[in-house]
Amino acid sequence: MIRTSGLTKRFGSITAVDHVDLDVREGDVYGFLGANGSGKTTTVRMLLGLVLATRGTAELLGRPMPAAAREVLPFVGSLVEGPAAYPQLSGRANLALFDRMGTGGVRATRSTRVGDALDRVGLGGVDGRPVRAYSLGMRQRLGLASALLRAPRLLVLDEPTNGLDPQGIRDIRALLLELNRAGTTVFVSSHLLAEIEQMCTRVGVLHRGRLVLQEQLADLQRPTGRVLLGTPDAERAIALLDGHVEHRDGDRLVVRAADAAELAVRLVGAGVRVAELRPERHTLESVVLEATGAGSDDFSATAAPTGPDRGGRG
């Protein structure tokens, strides 16, 4: 669905994107992670033909971009650098105009399609209000509604939850997963680790313009070789496990063990009560920070930004 080879963009002496090889497969929910300023938005703009690459190639739906933009873009929904809209018009009027200008939609079904798109993003009840009265989160929803007008095979979204409250983030996540189950491939650019971890099946990590990691999320969340053990008999467990306990926090122990089931048999057989026992797995946060060498402040692990993030976006 998306494939790039050596994709590079320079602005004078600055290399914003450096030989990026993306591989987004049909059916993916692909999370394109990177700190602000890492080159994410520049990459997305090159994918859509909005910016010309300095070097390398990009394909969408198996066709070269931007050469095949006229053929490809009717099947691609996108939201890049915030939604565009005419502020004096309502959300419904904006979508009708976008549909007439950009998607080639059938006029007879336009009103229905616009209404459906507004309903899907939670704006059906406020679409008579002029967009200048919309909050940032409502504008984000309107931009997503615009992307959905063309019933896309591929969605390319740049920070789609920017400005949304926690409920709004959950709503958009649920919508994107619903679309994916119905056959839409989703590409989401974000710096929100928690959102990517909860939603995506495949992850690419951009750091200072370079793609430093690209894997299935399930493979990244592999076991660490340790087991998390909760027991009211912590002292007995520590004595029994003879140096394999790496950390203790009250009744919770971190145990170096490859097989949780074997450990459970050993503990129960020795009369140690087990309240919790599960393999420890790598988190996306730990994997990303290790791959980038970045500090935790470079990514947001839990919360979406509360306002527009213009100056530092990639």
Rank of each mutant, 00 (worst) to 15 (best):
M1W: 04
T4V: 08
T4F: 04
T8H: 11
T8I: 07
F11H: 07
G12C: 09
I14L: 15
A16D: 09
V20D: 13
D23G: 03
V24N: 04
V29G: 03
A35N: 08
T42K: 12
T42M: 13
M46R: 14
L47S: 04
L50H: 13
L52Q: 15
T57W: 00
R63D: 07
V72E: 11
V72Q: 10
V72P: 08
F75N: 15
G77W: 00
S78M: 12
L79F: 08
E81T: 06
Y86K: 02
P87S: 12
L89P: 10
G91Y: 14
R92K: 08
A96T: 05
M101G: 00
G104R: 00
G105M: 00
G105R: 13
V106A: 14
R107F: 13
S111A: 14
S111C: 03
S111Y: 05
T112E: 15
G115W: 03
D116Q: 12
A117G: 01
L118D: 03
L118R: 01
L118E: 02
R120Q: 12
R120P: 01
G122Q: 02
G122R: 03
L123C: 07
P130K: 06
R132P: 07
A133I: 02
Y134P: 04
Y134N: 10
L136M: 12
L136E: 12
L136S: 03
G137S: 07
G137R: 05
L142Q: 13
G143T: 03
L148N: 01
L149H: 03
R150V: 00
P152D: 10
L155D: 03
L155K: 00
G163Y: 02
G163E: 01
G163H: 01
L164P: 05
P166Q: 10
D171E: 15
D171Q: 05
L179Y: 01
G183A: 11
T185Y: 00
V188W: 00
S190R: 02
S190T: 13
S190V: 04
L192T: 05
L192M: 08
L193E: 00
L193M: 02
A194D: 09
I196A: 11
E197T: 06
M199C: 08
G204L: 04
G204M: 08
H207T: 12
R208N: 11
R208V: 08
V212P: 11
L213W: 11
L213E: 06
D219A: 15
P223E: 14
T224Y: 09
T224Q: 05
R226F: 11
V227I: 15
L228S: 15
L229P: 13
G230P: 02
P232S: 11
D233H: 15
R236E: 15
I238L: 14
L240D: 14
L241E: 13
G243V: 06
G243H: 06
H247E: 15
D251S: 12
V254E: 15
A257H: 08
D259C: 10
A261Y: 12
V265Y: 02
R266P: 00
L267P: 01
V268C: 10
G271H: 05
G271Y: 03
V272D: 05
V272R: 12
R273F: 10
R273Q: 15
V274T: 11
A275H: 04
E276W: 13
R278H: 14
P279V: 09
P279N: 10
H282Y: 12
H282S: 11
T283L: 06
L284C: 09
E285G: 09
V287W: 07
V288E: 06
V288Y: 00
V288N: 03
A291I: 00
A301Q: 14
P305E: 10
G307A: 14
G312E: 15
R313G: 13
G314S: 13
